[in-house]
């Protein structure tokens, strides 16, 4: 079970963040986000087996409902409804993007992040993995031109933060649990409003078409 919870699921989470950079279709990104969220829900489930906390169980149910089922479904529906063309274009091409990702992961494993890794010696590698997830997600937001990809990047960043909190031993904290509940709801609202408004105003989700924002 340890291999499943401490290796396979974190690896799934991290690979999905990399996959977002490789994905060519919005549909794939939406599914990827669902898988990433499922991985986090399962990691939290592992914690639940240890603690038997009902609040945690409630959080897991919420998380699965919103992030694993509703959010991907919403994105897929949105893509179908507006016939959003997939914007695979990024500012950096794929090889360069992979180089930047490699550099970011190297930075995370450098001495810069040692103080954070040493917070939980037992899970130091997992903590670093979560931090790498944060930076790679942030890079997705920067590198992608499509607004939908950017939104998923932000949501992936948020998942990475939750993962970091779990591996740092903060999943027992009531504050974190309330925070997770709260951010699920808020992100859902923001994402919905954000995407709808952008499409309504600009008729596209390609942010390169939105340069008149400057004026």
């Amino acid at each position: 079970m340890d291999i499943f919870f401490n290796q396979l699921l974190p690896a799934t989470f991290f690979l999905t963040t990399i996959y977002f950079h490789l994905a060519r279709k919005n549909f794939g990104i939406a599914i990827g986000y669902g898988i990433q969220s499922l991985a986090i829900a399962l990691i939290l489930l592992g914690s639940f087996f240890d603690t038997r906390s009902l609040t945690l169980l409630f959080i897991i149910i919420l998380l699965v409902t919103f992030k694993v089922i509703i959010a991907p479904k919403f994105f897929i529906g949105l893509v179908k409804k507006h016939e959003v063309k997939f914007s695979s274009s990024a500012y950096l091409n794929l090889p360069l993007s992979l180089i930047v990702i490699s550099v970011l992961i190297a930075v995370v494993h450098s001495r810069v992040f040692l103080p954070l890794a040493s917070l939980v010696p037992a899970h130091s590698e997992l903590v670093l993995l979560a931090i790498a997830g944060m930076l790679v997600s942030l890079f997705l937001v920067i590198n992608r031109k499509g607004a939908l990809s950017q939104i998923v990047g932000v949501l992936s960043l948020e998942n990475s933060i939750v993962t970091f909190a779990i591996f740092s031993g903060l999943e027992q904290s009531t504050a974190l649990q309330v925070g997770i509940m709260f951010d699920i709801a808020v992100w859902f609202v923001i994402a919905t409003v954000f995407v709808s408004m952008i499409y309504k105003h600009f008729g596209t989700l390609d942010i390169t078409e939105m340069k008149q924002l400057r004026d």
């Binding site: 500012y91 930075v107 001495r111 810069v112 992040f113 040692l114 103080p115 930076l135 942030l138 890079f139 937001v141 920067i142 590198n143 992608r144 031109k145 950017q150 942010i207 390169t208 939105m210 340069k211 008149q212 924002l213 400057r214």
Partner: peptide, 25 residues
Amino acid sequence: LQNGIINAYMLYMFVVLLVVLFLAV
């Protein structure tokens, strides 16, 4: 710097974040 591209603004934040991390360590 004020070019109206959201990605650029995110990049600024990203760079600042990394610089602050380096300085903190």
